[in-house]
Computed example of a mutant assay.
Amino acid sequence: MKIFVTGATGFVGSAIVDELRNRGHDIVGLARSESSANALSDAGLNVHRGNIADPESVTSALSQVDAVIHTAFNHDFSRYLENCEADGRLLDALARALEGTDKALIATSVTIVTPSGELSTENDRALDQVPRSASEAFLDYANRGVQTSVVRLPPSVHGAGDTAFVPALIALARKRGVSAYVDDGANRWPAVHRDDAARLFCDAVERPRPAARYHAVAETGLPFREIAEAIGDGLGVPAESVPNDWAEVHFGWLAMFAAIDNPVSNDWTREATGWASREVGLISDMRNAGYFSTPSD
C-alpha cells in the first residue's frame, strides 16, 4: 500500500515509517518545513508539503494514497485545549475527504481520555470533558465509508530519543534536586516502547476494523513512585513525596500527569490483532537508553 503518514519525522511517526518500510509499503510523509522535507527525501520517502494547522494542505494528498496514519500533534502544552480542538478539526476534514472510499484512517489518541482510577478497556469511549477526546470524534465516519480507528498511547511512550513526559520529569528532578511523586505515589502510569507502538499502528492500517480503539500499552500501570525512584536512582537524588495540594507548585504543567491514575487493559487489542510487546519495559529502558545523559555527554 501507499500510506500517508503525518508526523513522519517525529518520535513515534519515524518508528512507524521504519516499520512500514520493513513491511514493504510505500510512504508519503507530511512535511511542514524545508528541513523536514529534506529529511524525508534523504530517507528515500515521498514528500507532501503541508501543515496540520491548514487542513486543506493535508487533505490534498489523500487521492494519491491508499491509507492514512495520523501521528502529528502540536505538543505546546500552554495551548493544549486549542491544539486538541485543532486536531479534532483536522481529523474531521481528513475523514470527510475520505468519505465513501473505504480507505483506512488511523489516528493517534491517548489513554488518559478514559476514566481515571479504574482499569480502562478499549470499549470505553473518550470522556467529553477530556480535551484530547476531540481526536476521537472522527470515529463516527466509520458509518460513512471510512475505516476509522484510533491507537491510544500511554503517558510514557519510551525509547532512545524520547522528549516527552519522562524526560521532562528527569529535567525537573535535576533542577530541584529531588525526584517527587504525589502523596504515596500509588497512582499508575501505563507505558509502551515506541517500536511496539509502531507495530500496532501498522497492524491497524493493514487490517482495519471500523471504529476500533486500540490500546498500545505494554505495561498496564506502573506505580508512579517506582518511576520517581528510578529517576532518583539515575540522577543520584532522593525520591520524596509531595502532598497533592503542593503538586502544582512542584510540578508546574506536569502536575496533572504526575498525579493521574490511568491503569489500562490491552486485552482486546491483543486478541484482535495478535499484537504483543517485544521490547524492554520503561524502568529498564530509562537505565539503558540515555535518559540520564546531559547535553555535554
Rank of each mutant, 00 (worst) to 15 (best):
1 M>T: 05
4 F>A: 02
9 T>I: 02
9 T>L: 02
12 V>A: 10
14 S>Q: 10
19 E>N: 10
23 R>G: 06
23 R>K: 14
27 I>R: 05
28 V>M: 14
30 L>N: 04
33 S>I: 05
36 S>M: 08
38 N>I: 13
43 A>C: 06
44 G>C: 03
44 G>E: 01
47 V>I: 10
48 H>I: 10
49 R>T: 11
51 N>K: 03
52 I>C: 00
53 A>C: 00
55 P>N: 02
56 E>D: 07
57 S>E: 02
59 T>R: 02
60 S>P: 04
66 D>C: 05
66 D>S: 12
68 V>P: 10
70 H>Q: 14
74 N>L: 03
75 H>D: 15
77 F>L: 07
78 S>V: 10
81 L>K: 14
81 L>Q: 15
82 E>C: 01
82 E>H: 00
84 C>A: 12
92 D>M: 06
93 A>P: 06
93 A>L: 03
94 L>M: 15
97 A>L: 05
102 D>Q: 14
102 D>F: 05
103 K>S: 08
105 L>V: 11
105 L>K: 09
106 I>V: 15
107 A>H: 08
108 T>R: 01
109 S>G: 10
110 V>C: 08
118 E>T: 12
120 S>C: 10
123 N>R: 15
123 N>C: 13
128 D>K: 15
132 R>V: 06
132 R>K: 14
133 S>V: 02
134 A>Y: 13
136 E>W: 05
136 E>N: 08
138 F>C: 06
140 D>T: 12
142 A>C: 13
150 V>N: 06
154 P>L: 13
155 P>H: 08
156 S>M: 14
157 V>T: 15
157 V>L: 13
160 A>V: 09
166 V>Q: 06
168 A>C: 06
172 L>K: 06
174 R>A: 14
178 V>F: 07
179 S>G: 07
181 Y>T: 04
184 D>W: 08
186 A>P: 01
186 A>H: 12
186 A>V: 13
189 W>C: 10
190 P>Y: 02
190 P>S: 05
191 A>W: 03
192 V>T: 04
194 R>L: 06
195 D>I: 09
196 D>C: 07
198 A>I: 09
198 A>D: 06
199 R>Q: 13
200 L>F: 01
201 F>G: 00
208 P>V: 01
210 P>A: 13
211 A>D: 11
212 A>C: 08
213 R>G: 07
213 R>A: 12
217 V>E: 04
218 A>K: 02
218 A>L: 12
221 G>I: 00
221 G>L: 01
223 P>Q: 03
223 P>R: 04
225 R>A: 11
231 I>Q: 04
232 G>E: 10
233 D>V: 12
234 G>R: 01
236 G>E: 04
237 V>Y: 02
237 V>N: 10
239 A>W: 10
240 E>W: 09
242 V>I: 13
243 P>R: 09
245 D>P: 05
246 W>Y: 13
249 V>Q: 14
253 W>Q: 12
254 L>W: 04
256 M>K: 14
258 A>F: 08
263 P>N: 03
263 P>Q: 03
263 P>T: 08
267 D>E: 14
267 D>S: 13
269 T>Y: 00
270 R>F: 09
275 W>I: 05
281 G>E: 09
282 L>E: 06
286 M>T: 07
287 R>V: 02
288 N>Y: 07
291 Y>W: 06
292 F>L: 01
